[in-house]
Computed example of a mutant assay.
Amino acid sequence: MISRVYHATLFALYQLCILIGIVAMPLAIAARQAGVTLPIHRVLANVEDALEARQSEE
């Protein structure tokens, strides 16, 4: 039961990170033009790795 909750939480977090990345895209474009990069890709990669690791365990 806990593993299902954990898996569902990871999946929801992954989807939330994708949504935040899409919503923040105009801000990221403006920040890049100013010479600053947002680390959203790192967060998404970490969550994706955790989700894939969990799926491979099953």
Rank of each mutant, 00 (worst) to 15 (best):
A30G: 10
F11Q: 06
Q55S: 06
D49N: 12
I20K: 09
G21R: 00
V23K: 00
Y6W: 10
C17I: 02
T9V: 01
L27G: 06
R54C: 05
I18M: 01
N46F: 06
R54K: 03
C17M: 07
V23W: 01
A34H: 12
H7F: 09
L44N: 06
A34D: 12
A12E: 14
Y6G: 02
R32M: 08
P26E: 06
E52D: 14
A31I: 00
L51D: 09
I18S: 00
A50F: 03
G35M: 07
E48P: 09
Y6P: 00
V23D: 01
Y14Q: 07
L10S: 13
L19M: 10
H41Q: 09
R4D: 10
R32K: 08
A24S: 15
P39A: 08
L38M: 07
P26Y: 01
L13A: 15
A30Y: 06
I20S: 04
S56W: 13
Q15I: 02
L27E: 08
V5L: 14
I2Y: 11
P39D: 05
L51F: 15
V5S: 13
Q55W: 10
L10G: 13
E58Q: 07
F11Y: 04
A50P: 05
I20Q: 07
L44S: 03
L19V: 09
R4K: 13
P26D: 07
L51A: 12
Q15D: 04
Q15F: 04
L13I: 09
R54A: 06
L19T: 11
E48Q: 15
R32G: 02
A8I: 07
I22C: 01
A24T: 13
V5Y: 13
L19H: 09
G21M: 03
I20C: 09
R32I: 00
R42K: 08
A12H: 12
A53G: 04
H7T: 02
I2P: 02
H41T: 03
Q33S: 13
P39G: 01
A34G: 12
L44T: 02
L38G: 07
I18E: 05
E48K: 15
A34P: 08
A24W: 12
I40V: 14
L38C: 02
Q33N: 12
A28G: 03
M25N: 00
A53C: 01
I18P: 00
V5K: 14
P39C: 06
A34I: 04
Q15E: 10
Q33K: 15
I18Y: 02
A8V: 01
L16H: 12
R42D: 06
E58S: 02
I20M: 10
A8Q: 11
T37H: 11
R42Q: 07
D49Q: 10
C17K: 04
G21E: 00
I29G: 08
M1K: 12
V23H: 04
T9F: 04
I20V: 14
I29P: 04
S3G: 01
N46H: 08
L51M: 13
I18R: 05
T9H: 09
E58M: 05
